[in-house]
Computed example of a mutant assay.
Amino acid sequence: MIIRELNDQEKPPMNLLLLADPSIKIVEGYLARGKCYVVEVDHEMIGVYVLLPTRPETVEIVNVAVEGKHQGKGLGKQMVLDAIQKARGNGYKTIEIGTGNSSISQLALYQKCGFRITGIDHDFFVKHYSDEIYENGIQCRDMIRLSQDL
């Protein structure tokens, strides 16, 4: 398994990115401003994350996704830890991440990786997505914001 930055000649793995964010418009927006990293096994892209600079000395992980058949094997945690390491290595002082109120597994994962809850963007998913999103039988309405100092 390798984690590497997507090069300019490669197309981003939209099938993976859309697993974590169902809006093509929003995904394309942050891909244009951030850096996309992919996880490869035997030259097959099975995971992806995007790092997006947001403020001076602050970067956000805006998408983390693992192909369905590879989920539950610790790849998400490896990608988040890799993102933290890359952010630290690039001189950022703070790393942030957000997830839906219904994303119970992701919320646990991010806290296990050292993130702390810093706030809630109420009705984020209702305002920014045309279709309702449900996960774990819960409507995804609010963005839970987390961060950690590097």
Results as ranks from 00 to 15, higher is better:
92 Y>C: 11
136 N>E: 14
66 V>L: 15
18 L>N: 05
133 I>V: 02
119 G>L: 00
78 Q>I: 14
47 G>N: 13
22 P>L: 05
130 S>C: 07
64 V>C: 12
32 A>N: 11
91 G>K: 14
54 T>P: 13
56 P>E: 15
67 E>N: 08
127 K>I: 09
125 F>R: 03
132 E>Y: 00
20 A>K: 05
53 P>Y: 10
53 P>L: 07
120 I>G: 01
112 K>W: 07
118 T>M: 06
101 N>E: 01
146 L>W: 10
60 E>G: 00
77 K>S: 13
101 N>M: 02
120 I>A: 00
125 F>I: 06
39 V>S: 04
12 P>G: 07
28 E>F: 01
130 S>Q: 14
99 T>Y: 09
89 G>I: 01
120 I>N: 00
94 T>P: 00
23 S>R: 08
140 C>P: 05
135 E>R: 09
63 N>V: 01
78 Q>D: 10
65 A>T: 07
56 P>Q: 11
5 E>K: 15
131 D>L: 03
87 A>R: 11
4 R>T: 06
123 D>F: 12
35 K>Q: 07
131 D>E: 15
91 G>N: 15
89 G>Q: 12
129 Y>N: 03
139 Q>C: 14
75 L>P: 09
143 M>F: 08
125 F>T: 03
68 G>D: 10
114 G>T: 09
24 I>R: 11
101 N>G: 02
47 G>F: 09
64 V>P: 04
